[in-house]
Write a protein that binds this DNA or RNA. Structure first.
Length: 413
RNA sequence: GUGGGUAUAGCUCAGCUGGUUAGAGCGCCAGAUUGUGGCUCUGGAGGCCAAGAGUUCGAAUCUCUUUACUCACCCCA
């Protein structure tokens, strides 16, 4: 027996309708927002992710599925969607389309991690990218799309946290101030943070360790260090969100783990998913396109974890509408099978979903099966129906039966 | 990579301090109703009790090892 690889999941026939529902809602919202779909390959040259995500990040330094192909190229299964879109944008000269350009994707992404609740080695992301506008209205547009989707699918227990991590210039100043402050408190911090002090002090800000939290509580805030331009941008974004009725909290402790973010960062988080509460994360990345060789292009976007979204909906007690079959044609004996096939084909040609027996089971068992697949109507075809040309159609919801001729069935079902 | 937990039927789980033939509920198949679902009743199929070793007259149960799964740290969606 060969098992499914660690950290991956099958979407089974009994569950796939939930995925289809989410995807349908995604497409609906994107249509309303004039966001066009883009599809890029499942794998890319490894260098793309080294240059965009940052080779010091955890994602790149230890979580990528990287291998050499038979032509000795270094290939990586995409660990996230944003860099791939940027590559395609540059390579296909999408700036030649009228800007701004809004795109979305639904894609599997791969990270070699220890799986746990809400964390897989292959998961699926819905993402939106908006290219070309540096305006805080663009940030708001993208956040609004995520918010509308989440609202439309009916999630509860979800909060939007926003922050600004400034531009690279502000961050240099902030990093210096942060290190200066933390250097006086190194003894009280956890081992991880002592290490991070040297490698990535920004990350200490969202350490979950209680002692570190206390130290961080009186640390300088990034918001005190961002430049006038970044500050105006962030203030304006808050005004827009407030005016448009999108509830949010400013949370200076959110820091994203991918290097390309600038200015706005945001997360939709919940407490009902265990340790992995981030359902959607995103922000602005004005320097991403130049980092991989394109012209300066302001961008803002997000990624949303579809598995996490589904888990949250299940936790919220969401009832998904299950797919149903319209008609089941019960076959009483082998003599009637061809007629049943004929009726089913006829119904299907009219756009009705229809099913008949393949198991040579009793009529009773066929009714049970019809019930299970949610058939709305059942018609039994037996030898007497073949002789008389008449049949009864039974409505399963209340058991009511109506007489029909087989010709009626053909034209009125 | 580092910890904690779990492993018995398709699923969710009982199985007491070792005792003979391995249990329930749900699900599946069938019968009661010889051509009509849902409710009820009855029956059936389905287990090398994760694998290996050890202790013992005797192991699903105790010990050790391995593996898998799971939760958490780190990080992210």
């Amino acid at each position: 027996m060969v098992n499914i690889p660690k950290g991956t999941k099958d979407v089974l026939p009994s569950q796939s309708y939930k995925w289809q529902y989410i995807e349908e809602q995604i497409r609906n919202v994107c249509k309303l927002y004039n966001i066009l779909e883009i599809r890029t390959p499942t794998f890319e040259h490894t260098e793309l992710f080294l240059r965009s995500i940052g080779d010091e990040t955890d994602v790149v330094s230890k979580e990528m599925y990287t291998f050499e192909d038979k032509g000795h190229r270094s290939i990586t299964l995409k660990p996230e969607g944003t860099a791939c879109i940027a590559r395609s944008y540059i390579e296909n000269n999408l700036e030649a389309m009228s800007l701004p350009l809004k795109m979305f994707y639904i894609t599997p992404v791969f990270r070699y991690e220890a799986p746990q609740a809400g964390r897989l080695r292959e998961h699926h992301q819905f993402g939106v990218e908006m290219y070309g506008s540096p305006s805080p209205y663009a940030d708001a547009e993208v956040i609004s799309a995520a918010y509308t989707l989440l609202k439309n699918v009916g999630v509860k227990d979800l909060a939007l946290n926003i922050n600004s991590i400034g531009c690279p210039e502000c961050r240099v100043k902030f990093n210096a101030a942060l290190k200066e402050y933390l250097s006086h408190h190194l003894d009280g911090m956890c081992e991880n943070c002592k290490r991070r002090f040297a490698t990535n002090p920004l990350r200490i800000i969202d350490c979950k360790n209680d002692k570190c939290k206390q130290i961080v509580a009186s640390a300088p805030s990034i918001l005190e260090f961002i430049c006038d331009d970044c500050n105006a941008h962030f203030t304006k974004l808050q005004e827009i969100l407030t005016a448009e009725g999108v509830p949010f909290n400013v949370n200076p402790s959110i820091v994203r783990g991918l290097d390309y973010y600038t200015k706005t960062v945001f997360e939709f988080v919940t407490t009902s998913l265990g340790a992995q509460g981030t359902v959607c994360g995103g922000g602005r990345y004005d320097n991403l396109v130049t980092s991989i060789g394109g012209k300066p292009t302001p961008c803002v976007g997000f990624g949303m974890g579809i598995e996490r979204l589904l888990m949250l909906l299940e936790a919220n007690g969401k009832e998904f509408v299950q797919p149903r079959t319209d008609y089941f044609i019960a076959c009483q004996s082998e003599l009637c099978r061809d007629k049943c096939r004929f009726l089913v084909a006829d119904l299907r040609s009219k756009g009705c979903s229809a099913e008949t027996d393949f198991m040579s089971r009793s009529v009773k068992a066929q009714f049970k099966y019809a019930d299970k697949i949610g058939a709305k109507y059942v018609v039994v075809i037996g030898e007497s129906e073949l002789e008389t040309g008449k049949a009864q159609i039974k409505r399963m919801s209340d058991g009511e039966k109506q007489d029909k001729t087989l010709d009626d069935l053909r034209w009125t079902l």
